[in-house]
């Protein structure tokens, strides 16, 4: 990720306007009725698993995070438009990722269908994926481009940086691109929560940005409400989404395995050899190891907020500690650098 100085605020405003317009025209999400997605036999849990699997596949194929988000928007639009049965969910999911990759990735990174089938272990045939691909194109009328939550997050982040540079300068010990990558990760967690499915990408991105601002400064309110106005988001929607996100992020740490990366894993080192540190980010590509542990709720809460603040003590203390997902993203990026 690259920041070339401060982007003029009018360009950012135009960009936001553009994205909001796209979202207003195309955004669609499946709704839940009883214990399944309306009109289908897909349970919330199965939906969440599909999204988590998408992220896993994204990292296997070294796609950009943008591709993951695009795949999720395609999946959501698809599930909202057809009455899909759960037996086709894997096929739909993998076809959504394939379409997102074809839309967003460069030619040299787009896999052949047979490799997709093999490496994803999706248990469907090439022919099935290709049929599903055409069905999705048909259903979405070939209109795949979409403003994703990540686009909004990047725009909001750049707007805050451009309007209140001192905020970042005074309160942030990591560089902005790393900061936005951490926030992206949080948005990614949230896209896998079925309770948040009803909220648009713009709302979700603004909530994450606001929660982050709250932790960074006491003066967060005017900055956040300025963004709220610019993004023309309903206050009620925003508050409801914020509460849901807060409860989800709080339960995130205690109820889930927390990944800490500690340096010197051979496993990761082997993946990482011959990969130069990602030049645009300035993050050292340290080989890291995974330690998973259950954490008691109080610590968990601290961790949740440190995840949210993007630079808890853990990370601040030692550059070699990092949130696992971020380094995965980083490695995927570094690997891709190598590709080209």
């Amino acid at each position: 990720m690259k920041f070339t100085g401060l982007l003029e605020s009018h360009r950012l405003a135009a960009m936001l306007e553009n994205s909001l317009d796209t979202e207003a025209r195309k955004w669609k999400a499946p709704s839940f009725q009883g214990s399944t997605i309306k009109g289908t036999d897909i349970s919330p849990m199965q939906y969440e698993q599909a999204v988590v699997w998408l992220e896993k596949l994204r990292s296997i194929f070294h796609f950009y995070p943008d591709t993951f988000f695009l795949a999720v928007t395609i999946l959501n639009r698809m599930l909202a438009s057809v009455k899909a049965q759960v037996k086709y969910l894997r096929c739909i999911t993998v076809a959504c990722l394939y379409l997102a990759a074809k839309t967003n990735e460069e030619r040299e990174v787009i896999p052949l269908v047979k490799d997709l089938v093999e490496q994803s272990k999706c248990m469907c045939s090439s022919a099935e994926i290709l049929r599903m691909e055409r069905l999705i194109l048909d259903k979405l009328q070939w209109d795949l481009y979409m403003a994703t939550p990540m686009d909004f997050l990047n725009t909001f982040h750049a707007m805050v940086m451009s309007n209140s540079p001192s905020l970042f300068h005074d309160h942030l010990q990591i560089n902005p691109s790393r900061h936005v990558a951490l926030l992206t990760r949080q948005v990614q967690h949230c896209t896998a929560c079925h309770q948040l499915l009803q909220f648009r990408g713009s709302t979700l991105a603004l909530v994450i940005m606001t929660l982050e601002l709250e932790l960074m400064t006491a003066d967060w309110f005017p900055v956040s409400s300025d963004l709220l106005t610019k993004a023309k988001i309903e206050h009620a929607d925003f508050i409801c989404c914020k509460e849901t996100v807060e409860s989800n992020l709080e339960t995130l740490a205690p109820s889930n395995t927390v990944y800490l990366f500690i340096s010197t894993s051979k496993d990761v080192r082997s993946r990482n050899t011959a990969i130069p540190a990602c030049p645009t980010e300035g993050i050292p590509s340290n080989p890291l190891t995974v330690v998973s542990q259950k954490i008691d709720p109080p610590i968990g809460n601290t961790l949740a907020s440190s995840i949210r603040s993007g630079l808890g003590n853990l990370i601040e203390a030692d550059d070699e500690f990092d949130l696992g997902e971020i380094s995965t993203m980083k490695m995927a990026k570094a690997n891709r650098k190598n590709f080209s």
Binding site: K102, T103, V113, K114, L137, Q141, W142, L144, Y145
Partner: peptide
């Protein structure tokens, strides 16, 4: 081996907008 060419997907979805 690759289904709908990516060029076709891009062309259609970009031109739609």
């Amino acid at each position: 081996e690759e289904g709908v060419p990516f060029t076709a997907i891009r062309e259609a979805s970009l031109l739609k907008g």
